[in-house]
Computed example of a mutant assay.
Amino acid sequence: MVIAVIGAGSIGRRHAGNLEALAQSVELIGWRAFDRTEFEARKDIEAVVIATSTPIRLDLIEMCAAQGWPFYAEKPLAWRVAQAEAIHEAAAPVADRSMVGFMMRYHPAVRDLATRDLSGLYGFHFEIGHDVRQWRENWSFVGSYAANPEGGGVLMDLSHEVDLALSLIPDMTLKSVDCVGHLDFPGVDFATRLHLTDVTGAVGSVAMDYVSPVSLRRASLRADDQVIDLDFLVPDMRVATAKDAKTTPYAFDRNDMFMDAMRDFLALVRGQKTSGNPLMPRFDRMRDSSLMIAQAWENRQFNGVVAMDMT
């Protein structure tokens, strides 16, 4: 049986390579070469990895659900609430054996944090930033999906941070979304900040940007008995209390997160025991995350512009 990876861009190639490293039979199919009628007639498909652009998610998820194929869908799933609702409704027949590709839930610092007592939390902040022009070799923002005013922008591109915050603080409510745009790309957010609260009264934010001259990815949580600061790029976590402070370093390779997620996906596909990660992004548990991201995109308020030469 074959694991089909649909979408042969950088993330599709990564997933295909990781599946091969896990001794799986893999077929990488570029979207332009994909023939749905021919594909649906196949009897050798065990599961599908969906690594296409975001607008194509619903059709492929409907196909997988109709065929009974578990799927691993790359993030983000949708940028509008109606889209997200339709995707989760369509996925229902195979949702408990499928996953969303929020691999940051497998970061060792996040898994460590998920085991800690976060009661007494009164403040939180998650942030990611980098200069989009330096993102990938031979990559152009202007001609990419990210420059599309319908579904593009930094909120969608770096939506991991929204999901990450929600995975650790699950009962959050979105209050507002402030954005900075660019005169040459109307409707595309270059810097975005979500303002959030949770049911206990804690207040916080999630920020992402295409502008920072220095790459950064970090989080801070403030509780009445501890102060927690994470740097995901080092990576390490510092926990301070009134009595002492301790910094924990984490040794790992970025691809480890993708590999761990794929191992769990294969276990779900085959009805086997998963890793036990309490944050595993199993599809039937991800509706709130999908809706939060879509609600944030629909509620963006542009309050300024950034002057970046994008030529």
Results as ranks from 00 to 15, higher is better:
163 D>I: 13
152 G>N: 07
164 L>C: 13
154 V>E: 00
177 V>Q: 01
153 G>I: 09
175 K>P: 00
166 L>Q: 09
163 D>R: 08
150 E>I: 13
155 L>I: 10
160 H>S: 14
165 A>M: 15
149 P>Y: 11
160 H>E: 14
162 V>K: 01
171 D>T: 15
153 G>F: 03
154 V>C: 07
154 V>L: 03
152 G>K: 06
172 M>P: 01
159 S>I: 07
173 T>E: 11
152 G>T: 11
152 G>H: 08
173 T>F: 09
168 L>H: 09
169 I>Y: 06
158 L>Y: 06
164 L>N: 07
173 T>N: 10
164 L>Y: 04
168 L>F: 12
157 D>H: 10
167 S>G: 15
160 H>Q: 14
161 E>S: 12
161 E>L: 15
173 T>Q: 14
149 P>A: 15
164 L>S: 04
166 L>D: 04
163 D>Y: 08
174 L>H: 04
174 L>P: 00
156 M>A: 07
149 P>G: 13
153 G>D: 05
171 D>M: 13
148 N>R: 15
169 I>G: 03
169 I>K: 06
171 D>C: 14
159 S>H: 04
158 L>G: 00
167 S>A: 15
155 L>E: 00
168 L>P: 07
175 K>L: 12
160 H>D: 06
174 L>D: 01
174 L>F: 02
162 V>T: 10
168 L>C: 12
173 T>M: 13
165 A>E: 10
172 M>N: 04
170 P>R: 09
170 P>V: 09
166 L>W: 02
169 I>F: 03
177 V>P: 01
148 N>K: 12
167 S>W: 02
175 K>V: 08
151 G>F: 08
172 M>A: 02
162 V>D: 00
154 V>Y: 05
151 G>K: 06
150 E>T: 14
171 D>G: 10
151 G>I: 08
159 S>Y: 03
172 M>Q: 08
176 S>M: 03
153 G>V: 04
162 V>P: 00
164 L>G: 04
163 D>H: 10
176 S>V: 05
165 A>C: 15
168 L>Y: 11
177 V>S: 02
153 G>W: 05
150 E>M: 13
158 L>V: 03
174 L>K: 00
171 D>E: 15
165 A>L: 13
173 T>A: 14
157 D>T: 14
158 L>N: 03
155 L>H: 01
152 G>D: 07
164 L>M: 13
167 S>R: 09
161 E>V: 15
152 G>S: 10
165 A>V: 12
156 M>V: 10
158 L>M: 06
149 P>D: 13
165 A>K: 04
172 M>H: 02
160 H>N: 14
175 K>N: 01
170 P>Q: 11
153 G>A: 08
169 I>C: 09
156 M>W: 02
148 N>C: 14
155 L>Y: 01
156 M>C: 13
174 L>Q: 05
165 A>D: 09
171 D>K: 15
152 G>F: 10
163 D>C: 13
154 V>R: 01
156 M>Q: 09
155 L>C: 02
174 L>T: 05
173 T>L: 12
155 L>W: 01
155 L>R: 01
175 K>T: 02
